[in-house]
Design a protein around this nucleic acid. Structure first.
Lengths: 331, 331
DNA sequence: TTGTAGGCGTTATCAA
DNA sequence: TTGATAACGCCTACAA
């Protein structure tokens, strides 16, 4: 149990009978202090429950070894898994992360105050308009699709991902593809997927149609597939679902009508997350894994922190296709 | 565009042709500086893009006006909504929040380094074992159910909430109640709800049974109600669902079998969140609103920060019942 | 009304 | 190998 006043290196110095600068060196494992002295000092520090004052350290060091993550859209849970991974990768590089859920400008201010070394931002919407011009720390945004002056960008190659799915179907002679997604969403990602679908099916010359789920929840996917089954006489044999939740609803809908997956209809889900294999039918999926995204984000940022470079770059992450049980896989 | 070296009050002082202590006062809106000087200084500060160095400020002030929130279970999205609200209430009290998703001990260390003024923790599991004894900042935990030596607790009165639901049914002469929840969960909250249900139904002398959804997802609720409908000959007329997601699945299952809500079966969901009114049938619900929880958490913490008191208290939040369309409401 | 000087807890640079 | 001492940027008596 420690008293109310925090213990400082000066307190340690007094007890150890050395100068406080020696204590500082000892605690920082400097080779300039005799091993015996070092041990003694460290022991005393522990006994006293010494905790270095971070503010003081940073005042002189200018580095906090922490990365700030801006996540203003707490409700949108998609980034949560990525952020977990970011934390892992940061740890691996001896960085910590701190989250702020305020809007971009405020978060940034707060992070600058706390002197984080770099920032990862998750609000595409806001970032697009963002023109902060008194920035002295590197920022890297996830999912912004137009190059920016003030920060680097990491994004997923949606075009490639969806194209990959279509090609998979094409190679296996599927006759008619459907895309289920929130097609009038204002989310750029959703639109990118939609456009890629149209583009790819035309390129591979496959009959195709697009269905609007009017939302991104499982219930929207569920309702949408119901409508398709009821109204459409010309059923698709391959379906691409634009998100995990929609996929989940679509599968439920098909199961209910006793339509066999993948014999009657095959499904490829967008989103390369492990949960895809836990659905009622493990779903073949395309997309970039959260781990890849996180790793790319962290590595890029740390590189910029270390180099102190001001190059603003754009990275597009390549998708991979994982075959599970929701598709006929004979070629 | 600012150069690389950050601008300090000394830079401002030079430009303004005053001493830097005058600048400090001016920037802190001290009455000890002539309005004209003050204006001039503030203007210059803005032009130079001055940002106070937080580390330096804190080094002398010992206060950061920020609250640390520990949220190690990012995957569990339940706290997200509460945290949003916490942010609002904190703002309202001129505090900022910072999130850490590391385990409790590490988060706490990090927050101590950054000198946050107080901490709100969300990991019941870990907190229960937590015996950190070199704490000099107030901590308050949400959802721990045994009193602790080192921190205060805010929790929901599950007993009261479920009891409220049962009483509602009782007063309206419901004959047979069912509880659907993850009954072999190791989550104390789930168990508390279950026990309260049994306790309350016995107290009100209503016929009742308990069903294990074997999970907390919508699909678990969906599957569970299906089984009930198929196997049970003695159907309940009132159902209490232990979470939002389960409620969502149960409703879908009932709709599918054309069982009318609330004519044939009434439903009360646990979880007082607005989404309850957006389900296919707006659901009557019990529970404590996230806003109440957040407010209680923030106010309690700030009180402790201000008072510097060391009293460790336990608060139990009273539930309220919101009537919507999933229950027959004539008494 | 303004300026001077001391101190907050560390690290870093000398000198001893 | 150790110890003084000067920063770091800011706030706050106290002096002018």
């Amino acid at each position: 149990m420690v008293g109310h006043m925090a213990v400082t290196i000066k307190d340690i110095a007094k007890v150890a009978n050395v100068s406080y600068s020696t204590v500082s060196k000892a605690l920082n494992d400097s080779p300039l202090v005799k091993p015996i002295t070092k041990e003694k000092i460290i022991k005393i520090a522990e006994e006293l429950g010494y905790q270095p004052n971070f503010a003081a350290q940073r005042l002189v060091q200018k580095k906090s070894k922490t990365i700030g993550v801006i996540w203003p859209t707490l409700e949108r849970i998609a980034p949560a898994a990525i952020i977990s991974k970011i934390n892992e990768h940061a740890k691996h590089n001896e960085y910590n992360i701190l989250l702020s859920i305020d809007e971009i400008e405020i978060s940034l201010q707060q992070f600058q105050r706390f002197q984080v070394d770099g920032v990862i931002a998750f609000d595409e919407q806001a970032m697009t308009d963002f023109t902060g011009n008194h920035l002295n720390i590197p920022i890297i945004a996830y999912g912004v699709n137009s190059p920016q002056k003030n920060f680097s960008i990491v994004d997923v190659d949606y075009e490639g991902a969806i194209s990959q799915a279509v090609q998979f179907f094409s190679e296996r002679k599927y006759k008619r593809l459907a895309f289920i997604g929130d097609t009038d969403s204002r989310d750029d990602r959703q639109l990118a997927k939609l456009n890629s679908f149209i583009h790819a099916t035309e390129k591979f010359e496959i009959d195709h149609s697009v269905f609007n789920s009017k939302g991104l929840d499982w219930i929207n996917g569920y309702n949408c597939i119901q409508e398709i089954l009821e109204e459409d006489t010309n059923l698709p044999d391959g379906v691409i679902c634009s998100s995990y939740d929609i996929t989940s609803g679509v599968i439920r809908g098909l199961q209910e009508k006793n339509i066999h997956i993948p014999r009657d209809i095959s499904i490829i889900g967008y989103d390369n997350i492990p949960q895809m294999s836990n659905l009622e039918v493990p779903v073949t999926s395309v997309g970039v894994s959260n781990d890849s995204i996180a790793q790319s984000l962290v590595n890029t940022l740390i590189m910029q922190i270390d180099k102190g470079t001001n190059e603003k770059m754009v990275y597009s992450l390549r998708s991979s296709l994982v075959v599970r049980e929701s598709t006929r896989n004979d070629i």
